[in-house]
Design a protein around this nucleic acid. Sequence first.
DNA 1: TTCTTAATTTGATATCTATCTAATTAGATA
DNA 2: TATCTAATTAGATAGATATCAAATTAAGAA
Lengths: 194, 194
Amino acid sequence: MFLFMANAHLANMLAFFKALSDESRLKIIGTLANSERSVEEIATLLDLKAPTVSHHLAKLKALDLLSMRTEGTTHLYRLNMEPLRALSKQMLAVEALAIEEDDTIHYEAWELKILTDFFEGERLKEIPASRKKREVVLRWLAEKFDREKRYSEKEINSIIGRHHPDFATLRRELIGGALMERKDGIYWRKEAQN
Amino acid sequence: MFLFMANAHLANMLAFFKALSDESRLKIIGTLANSERSVEEIATLLDLKAPTVSHHLAKLKALDLLSMRTEGTTHLYRLNMEPLRALSKQMLAVEALAIEEDDTIHYEAWELKILTDFFEGERLKEIPASRKKREVVLRWLAEKFDREKRYSEKEINSIIGRHHPDFATLRRELIGGALMERKDGIYWRKEAQN
DNA sequence: TTCTTAATTTGATATCTATCTAATTAGATA
DNA sequence: TATCTAATTAGATAGATATCAAATTAAGAA
């Protein structure tokens, strides 16, 4: 119940491949290769409706493949090449995809004790004052987030809120404890670093 | 219209991304990273049924990502690294892909749409409110002026006036949009600066 | 031949998602 | 203020496909 989770590398690559495995999105990247463009412009070029393009842009942006600046009411998107370069490198590291039989988190006996002490089912009774104990609780919380997903602050608050009312403090601790990262109001789970 | 012409790069990359954008298939690649394996073996490792694995193997094999040798009734699959390497390189050419896809033609297509939308023959029906569209119309208007000539304001007004009554606004926009320049009551077309 | 075992193919189903229209938001303009 | 335009969000739908069970094929072995 406290366990499971997939290979981080795999989840990461999967997210990128999914983003790039759509003809419209590849074409969008094509149109943005040379110049920044507005939503409507892309829509006209690809013969799609604006909402469809918005949908795709959001997906690409969630992976940091695009960035956007606004000029009046028009949103101008441009391509970020760095993530593509990174992915290109990662692809050659196939061994990294090799399944690790035991990638699950091992909670040691005392950690389990902390969890059962501070939790009532899924509800966190109180935030531990001691740093060590708080870390255990935070790692448990971090497991509630999918590594491949990107979250808005609202989503983060909602998910944490299921376990404890003071989601603001816990959210900050997740960032401070380097379990999650944030950029431009988007949150995601940080890679495990062992 | 030209969009539907299969761009070789795009079609090629799309096929690969689609093949790799599935969790099970990535895991299969993972299991094959170090050793060749039979269908049943993979099925057990990934907790899938044999038909499902067959399905995935077929897709990967179609792209030459795998090869197979048979030994009795068992089929042993192994990974081909070369296509992966090639794809990894191609990814960096996403820019090239877009450049190859004739960008000017698309841009003209979009421009043409704007122009036919806003023009009735040579007459501009209305001045587009959107900046992007107005730019297209202004560039069209600027073409009506010879790069070598110098014009008086009266001449400018007359020429613009053939296309729209509000020549004053359009004249100002041509200057503001850096398509024309003025000094001492003399107007001339500005050099294109790409 | 008949049986057994591994793999594939077929067919059905459930999930996912690209796309659209309609509604909403937010800036800019009049 | 009200109005326009660009973009996003919400909701609905259609098409794609991952998965499985059942049927079929293929290659030994008895």
